[in-house]
Write a protein that binds this DNA or RNA. Structure first.
Lengths: 275, 275
DNA sequence: CAAAATACGTAACATAAGATACAGCGCTCC
DNA sequence: GGAGCGCTGTATCTTATGTTACGTATTTTG
């Protein structure tokens, strides 16, 4: 079974004429980068003519050069998404039901954070810690618990934190309270909910800053969002996983808490004494 | 010092107009693959026009699109050559806020699952999948969202799943509906809530099977529980982390779904058709 | 050794890609 | 409330890229 282009080349290089073989070897030598460049560059690097390059990719079974490039890109994307760990950690023997799930989840988290810079998180945390505005949180069918979780924590360290729950009409009316200084945290993963999109749009029109937690395919709400956190959700299960987003949420909670340390600590002490 | 395009984007995303920001976010979400494709594909994926994409790369400091692509390719090439340095966001020197949090969380998960046998999970899943009894879920102050999350999923694949919410008196009265065949899933981590302990005790007296999600120091409810899941919660933050428990919950959801596959699938189809 | 077939490059071509000009729209600031 | 500025998309244009046709060189084979 030939699964990537490198193998395919190794398989057929024997049947190629001299010039095409030079092309093949040049590609293998700096696989796959040169294949992502133009035909002209590829041909120059190999010291053959452009038609030879085209005949070469045709011999590999591609209809045209762009198709060949797409194939290389797909391969690359697959490699990048499964960081070393997946190939390094052998699939647990006996095919237990647990390990694949856990492994996938851990990968999702690493991958999610790989696409998330410290600066971005710091920016969001700063926004959330800004006491001049209110913070609203809402989520979709399966993600609303994440909104609740975050709200439960944030509400302790600062005032004016509201989780929008219940019927759509309920939270739609809360729009009235929202303005430029306020932040709306939305959780929305596939299948994206129309009601949330509409709500986000209206909030956006009012100048509310939207922080969106979504999956890697980006909810349409990304269109209105000031900050987008794209978490990986794929796991070997019938459901998508929100675990990566959950961890991002916890990280943010931690960051906001640190920023509000002084006043936050005071609030917490006060709350304790109220019990 | 900005060494790669991802950082560059994170640095400047704040100064970008809305549409360009969307382009930036789409690129980051599937970094860097979409940037290697054509302007047209990039623009379609981001839902903006091609000129916006060009303005976006111009703002990043590139003369033209091909130059931007070359830059991405060089970066990729460098990454591929030294897999060790593959991290997109190098651990920020000087105690970055993200990495320690993520690392601790990942450790927590590994550790949690290390103490959790496949068999134990399978047993719990079997209990939850048993259609003869009802399933109740409840959580504490910060963990109730986890109970909700689990309930939201389980309720789809089987009937008789109830999340106990609201005032203590509300759910205390539901004890009347609970019996030997039923399961009560409780989430309780420090600081353990008296109300939950009392509730668990009463349920236990009625013969209800209790599945407890708690931290490694074990809530007093463990005394009454049929199954105990002890998750690691320590992270470098002012708060404890429930992420490990969250992942266990997702794993269980997946396992139960698999067990109820036949009837579950039917239910899901039915539900879809009800929309 | 001659003839045919194959390989390869040059040069012309078509097309798809990136770049630009411009107009409409919304927003901000007087 | 009006003027100005900045953002964004449509339509157009230009360029560079992939593609093809064809002639020469090279190898193979009878």
């Amino acid at each position: 079974m030939i699964s990537n282009i490198a193998e395919l080349i190794a398989d057929r290089i024997g049947t190629m004429p001299a010039s095409e073989r030079r092309a093949a070897q040049t590609l293998i030598a700096s696989y796959p980068m040169i294949g992502l460049k133009t035909v002209a560059e590829f041909s120059a690097a190999s010291g053959v003519s452009s038609p030879t390059i085209l005949r070469f990719v045709a011999r590999l079974g591609f209809q045209n050069y762009p198709e060949f490039q797409s194939s290389l890109q797909d391969e690359l994307a697959a490699q990048l998404q499964s960081p070393a760990t997946r190939t390094l950690n052998p699939p647990s023997p006996g095919g237990g039901t647990v390990s694949p799930m856990l492994e996938a989840t851990l990968d999702n988290m690493r991958e999610t954070f790989r696409h998330l810079s410290d600066k971005q998180l710091a920016d969001i945390a700063a926004r959330l810690a800004d006491r001049r505005g209110k913070t609203f949180l809402i989520g979709g069918r399966f993600t609303d618990p994440l909104a609740r979780y975050m709200a439960a924590h944030l509400a302790i360290i600062q005032p004016d934190v509201f989780h929008l729950a219940g019927q759509e009409s309920m939270w739609r009316d809360r729009l009235i309270d929202m303005g430029k200084r306020d932040v709306l945290v939305i959780f929305d993963i596939r299948r994206y909910q129309d009601s949330l999109v509409r709500f986000a749009e209206k909030a956006h029109q009012r100048g509310v800053q939207i922080v969106l937690f979504t999956d890697q395919w980006l909810s349409p709400i990304a269109r209105f969002a000031r900050h987008v956190i794209a978490g990986r959700t794929a796991v070997p299960s019938a459901w998508d996983s929100s675990a990566a987003l959950f961890v991002v949420a916890e990280t943010l909670i931690g960051a906001v808490t640190r920023q509000l340390e002084a006043e936050g600590a005071k609030r917490i002490r006060e709350m304790e004494s109220l019990r």
